[in-house]
């Protein structure tokens, strides 16, 4: 083996060395050239970059300023609505402003103007704000029902309570942790309870089982632990 290898290796050595050197040098030269070209291009572009940068930054700053100004204006409108001033709000307004308008209308009891506002919130996917708006609508309807009940007008009160309960339910569907809606739904439910047996069966064959209809009447110990 050694005798075979020794005459070969000295012949190869002078051949392989220059080829290796060439391979080693050319990428470094290429890299240097690329770097020089890049530096040249950067130097040439520098005046233009220096001109564009402040303009771009100023535009971004103006955008921020405009957004802050709009938010400030909406805040003023929200504050006015909370203070009780009747400020018109378009359907395309910002979501919190729509909710402020809904709460204002709910305080005044103008329920028919609230629905389109809530629909607009729903369309935008504002589940949280829409749930709070529905809760305010339910409150407004329940207050109207109380007005009727105080004047012993039982007939119009019933549908209003049902509507209020539906509003609370939809509010809770959108936001299950809205505790005020849970509480007020409880209040509304005690005014008008569900009659499950009437719902399930129709006709005259309804069995008179008062125990099942009014199961919630407390204070009747059933003898269970």
């Amino acid at each position: 083996m050694k005798a075979l290898l020794t005459p070969v290796s000295p012949q190869r050595a002078p051949l392989s060395r220059p080829s290796l050197m060439r391979e080693f040098h050319s990428p470094a030269e290429g890299r240097g050239k690329v770097r020089a070209r890049l530096g040249d291009a950067l130097r040439r572009a520098r005046p233009h970059l220096l001109l564009a940068l402040p303009i771009l930054l100023l535009l971004v700053a103006l955008g921020f300023g405009a957004a802050a100004w709009r938010a400030e204006r909406d805040n003023a409108a929200i504050a006015a609505l909370v203070a009780g001033k009747d400020i018109p709000v378009s359907l395309s307004a910002r979501a919190p402003l729509l909710l402020a308008r809904v709460q204002h209308l709910a305080r005044r009891g103008v329920t028919e103007e609230i629905e389109p506002l809530i629909e607009s919130l729903d369309r935008r996917g504002e589940t949280d704000l829409s749930a709070r708006a529905r809760y305010a609508l339910g409150n407004a309807r329940l207050r109207q029902a109380f007005d009727h009940l105080e004047r012993s007008n039982l007939d119009p009160a019933g549908p209003l309570i049902t509507l209020a309960r539906q509003d609370y339910r939809r509010a809770l569907q959108g936001r299950p942790d809205l505790w005020d809606a849970k509480f007020n739904l409880d209040v509304a439910s005690r005014l008008l309870r569900d009659f499950p047996e009437f719902d399930r069966k129709t006709g005259d064959e309804l069995k008179a089982e008062p125990k099942k209809i009014w199961t919630e009447i407390p204070g009747q110990p059933r003898g269970e632990p």
Binding site: D74, I78, P96, L97, A100, Q103, D180
Partner: peptide, 10 residues
């Protein structure tokens, strides 16, 4: 009833 709630300003 619990109150209607208020909107926090932006």
């Amino acid at each position: 009833l619990r109150p209607d709630g208020r909107v926090a300003s932006l």
